[in-house]
């Protein structure tokens, strides 16, 4: 008993905060594409931080609740239909048995379904995140398919479905996603491999995100950035947010399921607090890069963590007061 998928969506996987400590043997952290939406999905239903949730790209899955539960839906622009009725995202939702949920979105690229008490999943090397290449973790190490049943860890009795009236506010969503297409970047180790004119071009032009993007990386399209150095980089470590320059002069930003090493020049690194906005820009929004200093990187990071912590505290308080009675 739990949730049964009547449609899988394009790519639906189980993700927790990620698998850390194995980069040196070629296993990257994985984890959510949009850390903000993922963490809010847990905050809203009073789950311990980093509890595994369901991540889906749009069009999202359709599912039936074979038992009742307390859930949350998060993600930029997320919309859903619960038993034929339009419901908003970013709020706790009590769902009765046999309810049908259809997930849609006007904008945005990726969303999360959090389940109060968590969903049963396979843990691999300390994490439930699905590692699609190793075929480990999450649900049988693979993406969800039509007909799959995900079981809940705890039972929550719900007589009739209710969308709670509180949730993540418009102000917080504006702070994270806004309409600002500028992503904060720190200079990368090989930035000087392109000339000053290209550095200027990199931070002034817009980039569109190609549909060939996925959980490993977002491929960008712009006027080509010429490489001045003709030497080939010997493979070296990379991180999520690393902006690499491909031989054709186009850039790629490494995302959650990136490989641990790479052989392309690293021009820049997108700050962790701007990765949720980048993740959600796929398919509908261009992006630009804005250099930030190390000072602002640390300061903006602090504000980001304070915002998350305030949200977590607020949700915990409400969850304790209004949910699971």
């Amino acid at each position: 008993m739990g949730i049964r998928f009547t449609s899988s969506g394009v790519l639906t996987t189980i993700q927790d905060a990620g698998r850390f400590g194995y980069r040196s043997v070629g296993i990257g952290p994985g984890g959510p594409m949009d850390e903000f939406a993922f963490r809010c999905a847990n905050f809203l239903i009073g789950n311990p931080d980093h509890t595994a949730a369901l991540e889906f790209f749009y069009p999202g899955p359709e599912l039936v609740f074979e038992e009742s539960g307390m859930v949350s839906l998060t993600g930029l622009g997320i919309e859903a239909e619960l038993n034929g009725e339009q419901i908003p995202g970013w709020r706790p939702i009590a769902v009765s048995k046999n309810s049908v949920l259809k997930i849609r979105s006007r904008i945005g690229a990726v969303g999360y379904l959090g389940v109060g008490g968590g969903i049963k999943s396979e843990e691999w090397l300390g994490s439930s995140s699905t590692h699609l290449t190793a075929r480990k973790g999450g649900f049988e190490g693979r993406a969800i398919r039509k007909g799959d049943l995900l079981e809940f860890c705890t039972r929550v009795e719900v007589k009739s479905s209710v969308v709670h009236r509180w949730g993540v506010g418009a102000k917080q969503l504006e702070y994270v996603y806004g309409s600002n297409k500028h992503l904060s970047v720190l200079p990368g180790p090989e930035l000087d491999w392109i000339g000053p004119a290209s550095v200027e071009q990199f931070s002034t032009q817009s980039f569109s995100i190609l549909p060939a993007s996925n959980r490993m990386g977002y491929r960008l399209s712009s006027n080509a950035l010429p490489i001045q150095k003709s030497i080939q980089l010997i493979s070296s470590p990379v991180d999520v947010g690393t902006v690499q320059l491909l031989p054709d002069g186009q850039a790629i930003v490494l995302m959650a399921d990136h490989q641990t090493t790479g052989g392309y020049p690293r021009l820049a690194s997108v700050a962790a607090f701007d990765l949720p906005r980048l993740a959600q820009s796929l398919g509908h929004r261009e992006v630009c890069f804005s250099w930030i200093s190390m000072e602002s990187a640390v300061e903006l990071n602090r504000i980001w963590h304070d915002t998350l912590e305030a949200l977590r505290q607020g949700c915990l308080l409400n969850a304790g007061r209004y949910l699971y009675q």
């Binding site: 990368g188 180790p189 030497i231 010997i234 070296s236 991180d239 690393t242 690293r266 700050a271 962790a272």
Partner: peptide
């Protein structure tokens, strides 16, 4: 020694095997 990202540093010894 350079920053690789806001939470990682890259230590490089030339560019040869």
């Amino acid at each position: 020694i350079k920053l690789l990202s806001g939470r990682s540093v890259l230590i490089t010894y030339g560019n040869e095997i």
